[in-house]
Computed example of a mutant assay.
Amino acid sequence: MKIFNLLIILIFVSSCASSSKNELSFDAELSQFKYPFPVKTYEFSTQTQKLKMRYMDIGKSKSKVAVLLHGKNFAGFYWERIANDLVKKGYRVIIPDQIGFGKSSKPDNYHYSFPQLAKNTHGLIKSLGVRKYIVVGHSMGGMLAVNMGAMYRDIRKVVLVNPIGLEAYLDYVEYKDPEFFFKSEMNKTVDKARAYQRKNYYDGAWSNSYEALLTPFKGQLNGPDYEVVAWNAALTYGPIFEDNIVVKFPKIKAKTVLILGTRDRTGPGRGWKRKGVKRKLGQYQNLGREIKKENPKLKLIELKGLGHMPQFEDYNRFSKVFFREF
């Protein structure tokens, strides 16, 4: 763990040194931020636009393939350690940045939905000649993975790591226009982002490795394109509230595994619940069991004492259960 933390810190320091006065400045596609593996480009037409999905593709196996889907506040770069360990197990690992995230295109306007992102990702996978694969989704990537599992039959297994969406948010919260989220994104600061993650992801703890994960946000916040970055971030809240993945679990034909840090309290929309709603959102100690009850074939693995980022909080403990699925 110490070696991994050191590597992340070195990447962070290197990025800082590349800009004057130690102030990071990244464009919309993070051109100035180095990813852990070579970045490739999948160009495709969608919604009358030519867009570019960036992705990393490591390992050479044709029969053992894993596709790793990032969460909303991150991009593919944070899968580095898991990807390296999967390659050691003989896997080919594909890590896309979704449209609107990381190094991928940030269109001025795009109708974001999880079926659309699933179609985009499936197109990338097919363009690489992959026939069967395991899909892994963390946080928002878990909602995307559920959609892919429900839509496509070329998936061997769906592995979900603290996905959001285990409760239908619009049953409990008010609907907000994208303008609401855009204003919020434009008012973001590094201190606010850090405070949110410290409280909701790490139970008040903080470390240099957690800080390093904020590097892309810091650079884009200071960069010339933050407004379009913020607008895409605002638009991608829509699917989180509009898509009810709870009803899609039964549609997944592949074996599904749900790995949950039960201390997680991530509950999108808890700040604007409907009048009279008393439900506490983000009670992960209960959510997994509720999903399991409705989907008996689903495999539930609970990690007590860990939160939304179990793969970073305690990699050794997380990896013992995660890699059993490969």
Rank of each mutant, 00 (worst) to 15 (best):
I9V: 13
S15R: 10
S15C: 08
E23T: 14
L24K: 09
E29G: 06
L30I: 02
P38Y: 07
F44H: 09
T46L: 12
T46W: 12
Q47V: 01
T48R: 14
T48L: 11
Q49I: 02
Q49D: 02
L51I: 13
M53N: 06
M53T: 07
Y55K: 14
M56A: 10
M56W: 00
S61A: 12
S61R: 05
V65A: 05
V65L: 06
A66K: 06
A66S: 15
V67N: 02
K72W: 11
K72V: 04
F74I: 10
F74T: 10
A75R: 04
G76L: 05
G76I: 04
I82L: 04
D85T: 01
Y91E: 09
I94Y: 09
P96K: 07
I99C: 01
G100I: 02
G102I: 01
S104L: 04
Y110E: 00
Y112N: 09
Y112D: 03
N120C: 05
H122V: 04
H122K: 11
H122I: 05
L124G: 07
S127W: 12
V136G: 02
H138M: 05
S139T: 05
S139P: 04
G141I: 03
G141M: 06
G141K: 03
G142I: 02
G142W: 02
G142S: 07
M143K: 05
A145R: 13
V146A: 04
G149Q: 04
M151N: 06
Y152T: 03
K157C: 00
G165W: 01
L170F: 12
D171A: 08
Y172V: 07
D177S: 15
F181H: 13
S184Q: 15
K188M: 15
V190R: 14
D191Y: 11
D191F: 10
Y196V: 10
K199R: 13
Y202K: 03
D203G: 10
W206C: 05
S207I: 01
E211I: 00
L213W: 02
Q220H: 06
L221E: 07
G223S: 01
P224F: 02
D225S: 09
N232F: 03
A233P: 01
A234C: 06
L235W: 00
Y237Q: 13
N244R: 07
V246K: 14
V247P: 05
K248V: 04
T256H: 04
V257A: 06
L258M: 03
G261S: 12
R263F: 15
D264E: 04
T266P: 01
G269L: 13
R270I: 10
W272P: 06
G276Q: 12
R279H: 13
K280R: 15
L281K: 03
L281H: 07
K293Y: 10
E294K: 15
K299G: 01
L300A: 08
I301H: 10
E302V: 07
E302K: 09
G305V: 08
G307N: 12
F312R: 05
Y315G: 06
R317N: 12
